[in-house]
Each structure stands twice: as C-alpha cells, then as structure tokens.
C-alpha cells in the first residue's frame, strides 16, 4: 500500500460517512449522487497526493467534497427550474406533527429541506450538522470565524424551531 493509498484509507475511515452525507445534501437523485461521490473520491485521491498536513484530514476531505459538490451544482443549474429556498425555510416544521414521524422520516424531510437551499447556505448547514466547530467550518469555507459563528447560530435556531419549536437561549 503506497502512501497516498494509506492516506486515502485513513481519510475514508475518518470522513467516509460525512462525505456520503454531504454528497446527499448536494444531489438528491441516486444515480447522479453515486457519480458525484465517485468524482469526489477521485478528486480526493488526486488532492491527497498534495496533502502537506496544514489541515486535518477531515477538514481537507470536506474542502474537496464541498468544492466538488458546489461545482456539480453549478453544472446542474440548467436542469433546475425552481429557485433555491431561503435559509428561513429551514425553520418551517414539516406538515405532519413531529411526534407522528419516525426518525428516518424526519431525517429524510430534513435532507429535503437542506437540498432546497442555495449552495452557500447549504454548505454551512451541512458543516453545522456534521458538528464542526466554527473554527473548523471557517477552515473549510474560508469565511471568518465570527461570520461563521453568527451564521451557524442562526442555523441552529432555525433547526431547533423546525424540530421542536424550541428557541435557543
């Protein structure tokens, strides 16, 4: 096993499910999602050859994933007829009462809500949902930490409204 392959295996171990969920957040259609995953992994393989350790493997993998996905979304723009949803829509509760839905259904509805967001919002929501700290999110997005903090605060509030009607703080 060469160095790149070892590094790749480690990255998949650390960030594999995270990459899978992120690509799902960007592409709903299964076939295209599989292709997108493949493209992300190919780019990741190539990028890992240049990995110099200036970020964690997870951050590094997430950068590649989000960037490749953003490019994918911009290429798909021709097929998209409806406009992106406003971030505020993330806070709208599902039609059915939450108690009546199982966890899988709630998750699916959350994914749908995420998939409707504009790419920039979507990136932040996805990174937030993966539990990254504001510093880590800043490392992936290139935004300032204060900007990230402000915006993830708002995202958390919207998500909590959606899931339980609770207001944070």
């Amino acid at each position: 096993m060469d160095e790149v392959e070892a590094r790749f295996a480690e990255t998949v171990r650390v960030a594999g499910p995270l990459i899978a969920r992120t690509t799902r957040g960007y592409e709903a259609e299964p076939q295209r999602r599989a292709e997108l995953e493949q493209e992300v992994l190919v780019q990741l393989w190539s990028a890992l050859a240049r990995f110099r350790g200036d970020a964690s493997l997870k951050t590094y993998a997430l950068r590649v994933t989000h960037n490749v996905c953003a490019r994918h979304v911009s290429r798909q723009i021709r097929d998209r007829s409806e406009p992106y949803a406003d971030l505020e829509t993330l806070g709208e509760a599902p039609d059915a009462p939450e108690d009546h839905l199982d966890r899988a259904r709630q998750r699916a509805l959350l994914l749908e809500a995420v998939q409707r967001l504009a790419p920039a919002d979507r990136q932040l929501v996805l990174l937030y949902l993966e539990g990254l700290s504001p510093a880590e999110i800043a490392g992936v997005t290139g935004l300032s930490r204060s900007n990230v903090t402000t915006r993830t605060h708002r995202i958390r509030a919207l998500l909590r409204t959606r899931l339980g009607g609770r207001k944070d703080g």
Binding site: E5, F8, V12, G16, P17, I19, A20, R21, R24, A34, E37, Q38, E39, L41, V42, W45, S46, R103, Q106, R107, L110, L111, Y128, L129, E130, G131, R156, L159, R160, R162, L163, G164
Partner: peptide, 24 residues
C-alpha cells in the same frame, strides 16, 4: 437533536478503489 438526527444516517460510502485509481 438536529445533529444526532442528521448523523444517525451512517450509510457507508461506497469506495471502489480500482475505479478511483482509474479515474485519477
């Protein structure tokens, strides 16, 4: 809750190493 809910989805990433090498 929202993070747990999201991360409960642990569907594994399909990694076909040969295909990735070929793609690269």
């Amino acid at each position: 809750d929202e993070l747990e809910l999201w991360q409960e989805d642990d569907e594994p990433l399909t990694v076909d190493l040969a295909a990735i090498r070929a793609g690269s």
